[in-house]
Design a binder for these strands. Structure first.
Lengths: 139, 139
DNA sequence: CTGTATCCGACGTGATACTG
DNA sequence: CAGTATCACGTCGGATACAG
């Protein structure tokens, strides 16, 4: 029921910074990337990998709130999108390094910008939430 | 290109390429904003409202893939975060206008940057997905 | 150490019908 | 026109156990 066939075929990738929504077809594809950013853990993993390659349990320890399953799935998704590389060292015990690709590092930039904005305007947003909550709950 | 031109309270936020994770507590809060961006419809609505205030069914028509329920919920979430305002005209039939607040317009900037990045690197990502899929499916 | 498989609850999403 | 309520379904996410 969902238009999975996304025929972007946009000849002008250098579109003006006006609106990134010239067509609805493109939006779907862009949304999938946005969804990755909105993933509960993807951004965390990306941020952790900015410093350099990390091992599986190293990441698990750094994020600490994540479960093994979710870390695996998140890493898989990131790897699938070409955002991180997975290097296996056939040693005993096995060792797997995850590293940000150039694409992943590129994604990290706008994500960091967004993160900065979020961090900066956090008080405003939380204040608005409180206000809305109060108004909606006590009204 | 990147809207680093944001009114940050901390001057160190822009300078160091370090990771914006001074505390884990903050990450949670930032994640909630990121989650909003990652919402399936929030970004679409924000983009539609950049041009100016829109009515409910107007938005519903523009996005078209969205259900009434989801549009309502998305709008509520946006309103709760202080990103959009809801103006009711007690006419018959009733008319409700949704408009981006200053905060919402501010959020639109990094989101547009992210959207542009996504749009630009869409071929790379989709290619990586195809490759991963093929390698994982045929292996 | 690095995963995979399974179960299970929670939540997001949509379709439909109803109200002001 | 704008919004709510309810139900049904699929997916997400966590805990646990197991395997290479």
């Amino acid at each position: 029921m969902r238009p999975e066939h996304i025929d972007v075929t946009a000849p002008e990738v250098t579109a003006p910074p006006r609106r990134p929504s010239p067509d609805h077809s493109d939006c779907r594809a862009v949304a999938s990337v946005l969804a990755r950013v909105g993933d509960k853990w993807s951004v965390f993993v990306i941020m952790m990998l900015i410093d350099g390659p990390k091992r599986f349990n190293e990441l698990k320890r750094m994020i600490s709130g994540i479960s093994q399953r979710m870390l695996t799935l998140t890493l898989r998704g990131l790897e699938r999108d070409g955002l991180v590389t997975r290097t296996i060292f056939p040693t005993i015990p096995p060792r797997v390094d995850y590293e940000l690709t150039d694409l992943g590092r590129g994604l990290a930039e706008p994500v960091k910008a967004l993160g900065n904005w979020a961090f900066t305007h956090l008080p405003a947003i939380e204040g608005a939430r409180k206000q809305f909550d109060k108004r909606n709950g006590a009204d």
